[in-house]
Computed example of a mutant assay.
Amino acid sequence: MPFLTNETETQNIDIFFEDYGHGQPVILIHGWPLSHRAWEQQIWAIAEAGFRCIAYDRRGFGNSSAPFRSYDYSSLASDLNAIITQLELKDVVLVGFSMGGGEVVRYCTDYGTDNIAKAALISSIIPLVAKKDDNPNGVPKEDLNGIMKALQDDRVGFLEDFHKNFYNYSEDNETVSKAHLHYDWTIASHASPIATIQAAKAWAETDFRPELKNVDVPTLIVHGDADNIVPKETSGDQAAESISNNTYEVIKNGPHGLNITHKDELNETLLKFLKS
């Protein structure tokens, strides 16, 4: 199994990754609370289109190390930097889904964009999840506290319902198969409980608005207009206003997990951007 190690001053983090194809490197950064397996419908398409596709597990998720602490975005971005540095990648395209958009932005802040050719934010939490006076459409603090309490009290039970909302799934609207819901639940439930909660705090509390100026490469923003997890008004719309060189694509009836429900539309949009 392919791993590389991010050696920090306080701990060593083993990062699991998959590496397919040849050509310009495209790094896929998964969302919360899944793993690189969430990119199943994109990995093959990117590799077959002539790119080198690298998908990895965030620390605490999938097969990567699960430390007790250090799930802030700068720590997470250091893992991404270890991948780029140790694999000696140049002209990289960073693609972040949901929480993964935070690693894209924080990488640009902490390490610059000399090695980055393009970026893509898919169903991203960028720039801010929480409701504030200057972000009135964000998630109220009491709702975010409710998520943290549910994760503490019955994490696996919370995750079962969460993934239905991820795809706007109901018994009358089976947007994905029941088997896929169970598959996602299995991946998420086997993640580190500590990582699940600490990573949730990172995406719930981090305000990336001051950092968006650091994303100075061509950027694709894709969001569904039916996203019940991260409404586009608080994310895609604001990101498009603040990232100067962007292409903004809104997918009609797209839920948060549009990488599965609208995989063909997303793949076509993403590959067009990669080839441009």
Results as ranks from 00 to 15, higher is better:
3 F>I: 09
3 F>H: 10
5 T>Q: 14
7 E>I: 15
8 T>Q: 12
9 E>W: 08
12 N>D: 10
17 F>Q: 05
19 D>L: 01
20 Y>L: 12
21 G>V: 11
31 G>S: 04
32 W>G: 01
33 P>H: 01
34 L>P: 03
36 H>E: 07
37 R>V: 10
40 E>M: 12
41 Q>I: 01
43 I>V: 15
46 I>T: 00
49 A>T: 01
53 C>Q: 03
54 I>P: 03
56 Y>G: 05
57 D>T: 00
58 R>D: 04
58 R>A: 03
59 R>N: 06
66 A>Q: 05
69 R>C: 12
70 S>Q: 13
71 Y>C: 02
74 S>G: 11
75 S>R: 08
77 A>M: 06
81 N>Q: 14
83 I>H: 01
85 T>K: 11
87 L>H: 06
88 E>N: 14
88 E>F: 03
91 D>P: 00
92 V>R: 00
95 V>H: 00
99 M>Y: 08
103 E>P: 09
103 E>I: 04
103 E>W: 07
104 V>S: 09
107 Y>W: 09
108 C>Y: 02
110 D>S: 08
120 A>T: 11
122 I>N: 04
122 I>A: 05
124 S>H: 00
126 I>M: 08
126 I>Q: 08
128 L>Q: 05
131 K>Q: 15
132 K>Y: 04
132 K>A: 15
136 P>E: 14
136 P>H: 10
137 N>S: 13
138 G>Y: 10
139 V>E: 10
140 P>H: 11
141 K>S: 10
141 K>I: 11
143 D>R: 12
144 L>G: 06
144 L>H: 04
149 K>E: 12
149 K>N: 09
151 L>C: 04
152 Q>S: 12
153 D>H: 07
155 R>W: 02
156 V>C: 14
157 G>W: 08
157 G>M: 12
157 G>A: 10
157 G>F: 08
161 D>E: 13
161 D>Q: 12
168 N>H: 10
170 S>D: 09
171 E>W: 11
177 S>V: 11
184 D>L: 13
186 T>Q: 14
189 S>V: 12
190 H>Y: 09
193 P>H: 07
196 T>Q: 07
197 I>S: 09
202 A>K: 07
204 A>F: 15
206 T>K: 05
207 D>Q: 00
209 R>E: 03
214 N>Y: 04
214 N>Q: 13
215 V>N: 06
217 V>G: 03
218 P>T: 07
225 D>N: 15
229 I>C: 06
229 I>L: 07
229 I>N: 05
230 V>K: 02
230 V>Y: 02
231 P>L: 00
231 P>T: 01
234 T>C: 05
235 S>N: 14
236 G>E: 05
238 Q>P: 06
239 A>V: 07
242 S>F: 08
243 I>K: 04
246 N>A: 14
247 T>M: 07
248 Y>L: 14
248 Y>P: 15
251 I>Y: 07
251 I>L: 06
251 I>W: 01
252 K>R: 14
252 K>S: 15
253 N>L: 03
254 G>W: 03
255 P>Q: 03
256 H>P: 00
258 L>V: 09
259 N>M: 13
260 I>G: 02
260 I>Y: 07
262 H>F: 06
266 L>A: 12
267 N>E: 13
274 L>P: 00
274 L>Q: 07
275 K>F: 00
275 K>W: 02
